[in-house]
Amino acid sequence: MLLSCWENRLFICWVMDNQFVFDLNDYTCEFFALIRREWGFVEKLEHVSVTPQKTALVKANGVTKIFRSRNGETVEALTPTTIDIAEGEFLSLIGPSGCGKSTFLRILAGLETPTAGSLEWRDGAPSSGSDIGFVFQEPVLLPWLTILDNVRFPLDVLGVGKQESTERSKAMLSLVGLADFNKALPKELSGGMRQRAAIARALVYKPRIVLMDEPFGALDLLTRDRLNDELLGIHAETGSTIVFVTHSIEEAAYLSDRVAVMSARPGRIRTVHELGLNRKRSEALKDDPEFHRWLATLRKELK
């Protein structure tokens, strides 16, 4: 028996001169694992990677956005854009202002409707309030509620019981390092702390996808670095799918599994890079030559 990989997706399997073609998904992976276990083709299979191909959580098919200004001029904010977003991945959209990165994010969130093209969600289009988590550029909190009540707000809206919602919100607040500020009002916190609360609010209902629109853009560099590390920790812990819009090359390279480089006029995705850097990133990564090569590549592409 022999296995080979074809186009990263289909696997061909020869068993005693018979050829079988498999689409690699969770079932076939289990099947291969079973063969390996039961029949002991360990040596033959060992060098074939059978890690599951991540299934796309959402596919954007030719998503286009054209804005019409009042005097009839049209602005092509986003030319037909096609990209798959895999479950559990950290995808960054990077590019100059006007490249349509925020527009694309808002289309994903359902805040804008595409002029053409469509989104294909694996589990059906988002219909409930718990499907999408969104973190805005500014921390959008309800100023009359305490931090705990702000984080709990989506759960209250969804009708989760008071005790459970309080527990989950408190757990989420300690995850973002705000355990001691449950009773504080938003005005009493710094910008960075407010943004952490907003992140906690976006994660507390375990959305299918978390969309972040330059969430750290308004913060100072030190706070930004710290929050980047915290975000990586949260991503590792929760396994959520994150689409992250930024204009910082370093931030994108530091955080992401994949980086989509976009360019303006008209707005489009130019290239998508799979960084393949060590997932357990830390400060040490910033001295990694591989990391710096990526920075250089991305910077060149953005010019």
Partner: peptide, 29 residues
């Protein structure tokens, strides 16, 4: 009512009376 709060309500699929009572009126106080 700030545009961002409207966006937040749209994300959370909060509308109608519920949105009025929970977000818009407190914000208009």
């Amino acid at each position: 009512v700030p545009a961002n709060l409207h966006s937040l309500c749209a994300i959370l699929k909060l509308g109608g009376t519920s949105k009025l009572v929970r977000v818009e009126l407190p914000s208009a106080v």
